[in-house]
Structure formats: structure tokens, C-alpha cells
Design a protein around this nucleic acid. Structure first.
Lengths: 125, 125
DNA sequence: TAATCATATATGTATTCGTCACCTACTCTC
DNA sequence: GAGAGTAGGTGACGAATACATATATGATTA
């Protein structure tokens, strides 16, 4: 899903068209609790968030989300392999997800308006 | 157009849902050449790019776009008032705009898929 | 059994980018 | 000549990400 700009001078443009990381995390966690490594894989599979999910970014975001009360975590040890931190959404996290949905809706409208305007102008040319 | 998060813990979320600054600049300049001050006003009027266009951001972006060959500039002095730098799109700039349009289309599809999935899950709950 | 791979979390640092505060300069009007 | 509006800009700062690296456990394989 990660796209390479055909022209290197366009490189920074892609980064400015957003990465839906936090909404994606909230959305996965609303579905069911999960730990970081799992979320990294899911996000890479899902195609949300054009970026290739960087572990550092994911873990740091999860920590901040916990600081802000959007998620709750607890260590899980009843399984093979290294201990993992299991995250679940708090009530505030659900509110945040709703807020994200609102923002994304607005954004879609905004972007659609932009595209319509662009296409209209191309047609007139 | 700028929205305040109802919950301060959500503050950083809004900033992660993108600001369409570069596309908006390219789009305005595709329409007709313009100088920075003019673009600042247009962007604030248009409602694209939720951000309140900060002059520093606009000017720096224009400079970088020029470095990257997306726009060409020349000083204009045949008018009253301070000299102004007039920017116009280069052929590469038009390509970049098309690239932006492509990215934004993808993004809209992506976000729409996200919203659909969210709404589907809410319905099932 | 030693090496190595997959899982899992985390930190340190550089860089990128936007925001805030500030500056210069020109022109017109009061 | 003081102030407002137009026009273009910079430096310091902070927030967030990218990239590299550290750490530990368990499974596989040479």
C-alpha cells in the first residue's frame, strides 16, 4: 500500500496527506483488546495509514494514549513467548473514536470538495 | 473551520487528520499565478486545510516548492505597495498536483472504507 | 548446544514541520 | 507623522516521526 512518489521532489507531499494511525489504533482496539505487536501487523495488513507502521511510532502512540486515558493496559504472561502488554479501550477511548469518525467525515467532505473543484477546472480548460 | 477538541486529551488527534496545505497551494496556483499574501487569504477563505494558514508556513512551503522545481517565482514591482513575489506552477508542479489528486482520491477511498467498517461494527454491536 | 529467527517492548537521537513571536518595508489616510 | 493595511520574511521552539538500536523470551535448526 505504501506508494513511492514517481518524482523524488514529490516525496514530502505524500507525508502531508495524513496517516490515519491513531484512528486505526482506536478502531482495532474498539473491536477487541490487543497488544502492540499485533496492532503493528494488523495496521500493515489493513492498508489504513499508508505508512509502514514503525514500531517506535506505534508503541509511543499507545503509551501516550494510555497517559491520556484513552486506553488501559495490563501485562499478559499466561502464554508462551515474551510478556506482552494488552491494551483495551477506555470509555474515553470510545469517545475519542467517535471524535475521530467525525473528523474523518469532515475530512472526506473537504477532500471530495477539493477533488470536485479540481476536476471542474480541468474540464473547463 | 478550525475545530476545538471537546476533550483536551483528544487535542493531538485533530492534528493527525491532515492539513491539505500543499495541495491547496498547487491548486490555487494551477488556476492562476499568485503571490504569498494572496494565497494566505485564499486558503483561509476556502476552508481547505483546517489549519489557519500561518504566513511562516505558507512562505516556507512556497520556498521549498520552488527549490523542488514545482513553482517558479519572479519579483513584481509594476504596482503600488511593497514588491511581491509572484509564483506560478511549473510543468513539474502540474504533475505534482495530479499526484496530489491521486493521493487524495486514494485517501478518500481509504477513509470511506474506514468509516464504513466503523459503522458496520457499530450496527452489529 | 550454539546460532538464529520470530515475538514483543522500548529508548535515543536526528530530522522535519508547524507555530509563535518578531522584524523590515511600502503606501495610503486621518 | 501616526496608524492601519499590504507584502515578505526569519529565528527559536516544541511536537511528532523516522531510523537505529537495545533488551528479553521462546522455537527452530545446524
Amino acid at each position: 500500500m505504501k506508494e513511492e512518489a514517481q518524482n523524488p521532489a514529490f516525496a514530502y507531499i505524500a507525508g502531508r496527506i495524513d496517516k490515519m494511525l491513531v484512528p486505526a489504533l482506536l478502531n482495532f482496539l474498539a473491536h477487541k483488546p490487543a497488544h502492540g505487536y499485533e496492532l503493528i501487523q494488523k495496521i500493515n495488513e489493513s492498508g489504513f495509514s499508508e505508512i509502514e507502521a514503525d514500531p517506535a511510532t506505534i508503541y509511543r502512540n499507545l503509551r501516550r494514549m494510555e497517559e491520556d486515558g484513552l486506553v488501559l493496559s495490563q501485562w499478559e504472561t499466561e502464554h508462551t513467548g515474551p510478556a506482552r502488554r494488552s491494551y483495551q479501550l477506555s470509555p474515553e477511548g470510545h469517545q475519542a473514536l467517535e471524535y475521530c469518525v467525525q473528523l474523518i467525515s469532515d475530512k472526506v467532505n473537504n477532500m471530495t470538495a477539493f477533488l470536485d473543484q479540481y476536476r471542474q477546472e480541468v474540464k473547463e480548460r
